[in-house]
Design a protein around this nucleic acid. Sequence first.
DNA 1: CACTGTACCGTACGACGTACGGAATAGGCA
DNA 2: TGCCTATTCCGTACGTCGTACGGTACAGTG
Lengths: 255, 255
Amino acid sequence: MAAVTSGSGDPVRTLALLWRTKDAPSRGPKPGLSVDAIVSAAIQLADTEGLGALSMRKVADKLGVGTMSLYTYVPAKAELIDCMVDTVSTETERPEHTGGWRARLEQVARQNWDLYHRHPWLLQVVMSRPVIGPGVIAKWDYELRAIDGLGLDEVEMDGVLNVVLAHVEGAARAKLQTEQTERDSGMTLDQWWAASAPVLERVMDESAFPVASRVGSVTGEKYASAYPPDHGFAFGLERVLDGVAVLVEARSASA
Amino acid sequence: MAAVTSGSGDPVRTLALLWRTKDAPSRGPKPGLSVDAIVSAAIQLADTEGLGALSMRKVADKLGVGTMSLYTYVPAKAELIDCMVDTVSTETERPEHTGGWRARLEQVARQNWDLYHRHPWLLQVVMSRPVIGPGVIAKWDYELRAIDGLGLDEVEMDGVLNVVLAHVEGAARAKLQTEQTERDSGMTLDQWWAASAPVLERVMDESAFPVASRVGSVTGEKYASAYPPDHGFAFGLERVLDGVAVLVEARSASA
DNA sequence: CACTGTACCGTACGACGTACGGAATAGGCA
DNA sequence: TGCCTATTCCGTACGTCGTACGGTACAGTG
């Protein structure tokens, strides 16, 4: 099951946590744990078992401490998830931007695509407020630099990046969520379809949905055989970037 | 908090539920409830309080029955959510397609945009398997018909629709999730920023993220004043459709 | 050496999804 | 008419969750 909100607590406390601004206390016992250790254990758990299986108790068990000890370092689960998001955001590679804007955006999209593959639980995080941590900001800055200096204004830059990333997220969702479910349920998508198809045939009048039936059967067949698993990602990215190209050319023509 | 999976149970049972294929039993007491009543109560609850606040107990209370009575009609919460998704999918308007493909896709996108506004909890549903119910299929068929006959093959049609809908979802997420959080937490985004900004200034070195800082401050300012709230939606849609146009023109030129 | 701020965490509470089994009901059939 | 049986309804209970609260052990500070 699952899912989870982030960023519901006191903003000041959350920011202090994300940016790790708290001087080590002089009094008291030495901390046996750290925010980083907790966050990294939580990420490992979410990677292997999904966000739905992530509980404070399991994180604590993995670290060999009592559950409530975590709350010495982290105000609540929502803030822990904020930290997880910020931490994995640092993982994307950021080579110096070279080449044209299109190659740059392709690289940015690919980095995000890979990030979702490493951490599919990112797709299940319900972000109620933006996570403003060092990792997220650095990633955003890098991604914006890919399209800086093209004559787009700031709102346009933001908009362009959003379309690209929305596409990546959608494509990742389509591919990864079913994979995660296969792991959880022990039932592959093929098996699921095999179980569903006969019933569906009896229950649904295909002629009432002619186009859906046609497209559904062809794509089901082709994706199983002819197309690589990231075809949806690559295809959509081309469309989006073609659209961005129209804008960029208009702006550079008027400059 | 929250979130939720759907479609984790027995496919045959789920399909029977979605398509309402069960003959009314001849023996036994008259059912005092119905799947439709339960689904509609659940939708109302999710609309007003969010998916995180949706529990079997609350649905039952709203209907004035015992919690476990729901399980006579619905195998589990996941299947209930499947039904909710399928039901609201019937709500989108579907006028006969007229005009060019671009106007059609704009209309499709707008319908989905409106749907997310009516039911923001749709953004929080973690769909592990496709929901194959009459509502979802009918909607998909209609949307595919918007781009049928343009010379695109089936996989391309699927891909084009996916990019458009991924953009709508992303834009809706950006706009609606913060609105939902404002309702839940009683703290507006402005207040949240007001609380965060001073801390952020102290903690973050703006010069380390020059482009992010510039774009962040300009967009924050402009979205508060100069732009309509659906600017992100409209802007991204233009980009995506410009990209689709390139493909459509290529296909119709080669025909 | 006492004080005090800190780390650690056992216990407990309220909410959740739902398994289980019993009671009440009403049509089908003898 | 009356029993049988498929159904509906649902109270109770279990395991899991996030986390509030308060106690205890610890280690620098005055």
